[in-house]
């Protein structure tokens, strides 16, 4: 303890009300997990709506799901899992003090997130063009079911809320890149990278469920 380490420890991130960096890190991470609990229950309401209406109109889901392109859903699944990998690599880079690797991995993640949103944009645009709009704006005639709009209301709410989360994630990671370039992060302090990573993985998990539930039921 009395010996100062060879590389001087940076402690400017440490708030005075924490004993040490580890305690601060653990507190932040626990706070993030509490937030993720609220996120799970937030999306949970929509998953519940999906379940209730699927129990009421099972045949509607099978019919309406044919309007969704399994191929593009699968591509987006692969894109998001890939971005989860690069976020995990970004955290690993930060833990090893490889700030260049951290920035590169963050940029790849941002790129993959943008690919996801672009694919989603084309999916939405194609449906809007056909008159497949949520709720009362639904005018598509191609599905032989009175309540066809219900499936797409649920589809737009679930994928829309998920898409908003992806956009927020892109914003957070741009902020991380900015901070990393200012040399804020190092192996002793990378809490924002870890926390954003947890958020991003949750967004990935939500999609892991949305893909089979929406795209794969026909």
């Amino acid at each position: 303890m009395s010996q100062p380490s060879a590389t001087e420890e940076r402690l400017e991130h440490l708030k005075h009300y924490f004993i040490d960096s580890d305690q601060q890190f653990e507190a932040s991470k626990m706070g993030m997990w509490v937030f993720l609990v609220t996120e799970i229950l937030f999306f949970g309401g929509l998953f519940l709506a999906y379940i209730v209406y699927r129990a009421w109109y099972p045949e509607l889901y099978l019919l309406a799901s044919e309007e969704l392109h399994t191929f593009w859903g699968a591509v987006n699944t692969v894109v998001l899992i890939g971005s989860s990998l690069t976020v995990a690599m970004a955290i690993r880079s930060a833990q090893l003090n490889q700030i260049k690797g951290l920035i590169i991995n963050l940029w790849i993640t941002i790129g993959l997130a943008c690919v996801f949103m672009v694919i989603k944009y084309f999916e939405y645009a194609e449906k809007f063009g056909k008159g497949i709009l949520p709720g009362g704006y639904y005018t598509y005639e191609g599905i032989e079911h009175e309540q066809a709009n219900i499936f797409f209301s649920i589809y737009y709410m679930m994928t829309g809320l998920h898409g908003i989360h992806v956009l927020v994630g892109i914003g957070l990671m741009l902020w991380l890149v900015y901070k990393a370039k200012k040399k804020v992060f190092h192996s002793g302090y990378y809490t924002p990278v870890e926390i954003t990573g947890l958020y991003w993985h949750l967004v990935d998990i939500i999609w892991i469920f949305l893909f089979p539930l929406l795209y794969l039921i026909d």
Partner: peptide, 18 residues
């Protein structure tokens, strides 16, 4: 089957990515 595979995937992400 679809839900079971999704649950396994989610648990893998939670355990080893998160």
């Amino acid at each position: 089957v679809a839900i079971a595979i999704a649950v396994v995937k989610a648990l893998i992400v939670v355990a080893f990515f998160m």
